[in-house]
Write a protein that binds this DNA or RNA. Sequence first.
DNA 1: TCAATTTGACCCCGG
DNA 2: CCCGGGGTCAAATTG
Length: 340
Amino acid sequence: PPARTVAEACMCCFWTMDTAPVCLDLMVGRPMDHEPSRARCTGTRTEADVASSACGRAPSMTNDEAKILEAKLAQVSEENRKLTEMIAYLYGNQVSRQSPDGEGQPRASTAASPTPPASKKRSRDSMDTSHSCDVEISNRNVGTGEAEHVDVDSPLSNGTCRRIKVKKVCTRIDPSDTSLVSAKSQWRKYGQKVTRDNPSPRAYFRCAFAPSCRVKKKVQRSAEDSSVVEATYEGEHNHPHPTRAGELPSCATQGGGSVPCSISINSSGPTITLDLTKNGGGVQVVDAGEAQPDMKKVCREVASPEFQRALVEQMARELTGDQKFTDALAAAILRKLPDY
DNA sequence: TCAATTTGACCCCGG
DNA sequence: CCCGGGGTCAAATTG
């Protein structure tokens, strides 16, 4: 519990469980709203201390000290930014290999400016989902589906490269099940076409969350086996993956008041958010609704007492091994002590 | 009334 | 240049 009010940082760590990536956000505390005693700042200074000092809350500080601290703060911020980008990039790569629909966090590389379209491209081009010469097609093993992985290069005639992120997913479903074909919820259907080589119509979907998002999906039953649905995902989301309605309910609505920890499940993997600023404890799995079967299995595992215990132990190991955290914890405890 | 889906027409590209 | 097919648009339809 003391940790709730200590660290100023939000720490993230990622690890893989089975096939699903798990994002762990530890929202450890809010900045202290009262000034720490100068006498207690004699030890290792936390970033928060640096920040608060840099904000001029230490009137006796010299300009040189302030400049040094500002530079230090800027350096730490830059490091933090780079680490965040790296995590996003690594996580994006992982998602691109593991998520059946690629709805995960956009990769850092998405920010790269796209090469202008080559010569013969449609003007109303909606094909600007392509930004590289890598075409990744992966048939993942979903349920009883077949699995294969293919990489295709797609250079342009003018010698430049464009990046097209394409995933192909084969899923075996009950023939009467139209859930995937209709693909409601986060995809908006904008067209349907019967193609020459397949009697089943091909449905075209766009991301329904953001109009500017260029991600597309094509869904069509296999010509050979109508129980197999092939979904092709093209492009990357250019927006954070939104939470579904009710996925992250207000802490106050949960039993006994606030919930310090919640797990949101989406197709790119469950996200565990630990908000240690709240009272109480426990882990809650929220909305595994459309999760894949293996995802649901992961959800059950995540919700299990064994996993929670392991999670707490893992967190404890990570936190106690973090010098900054322990320093901040000690400082916070000192601040919390009555001024005798 | 509004949002989502359907569906015929159109556009673009490759052969 | 023509034609066929895939992909997209947008008006009509539906819930």
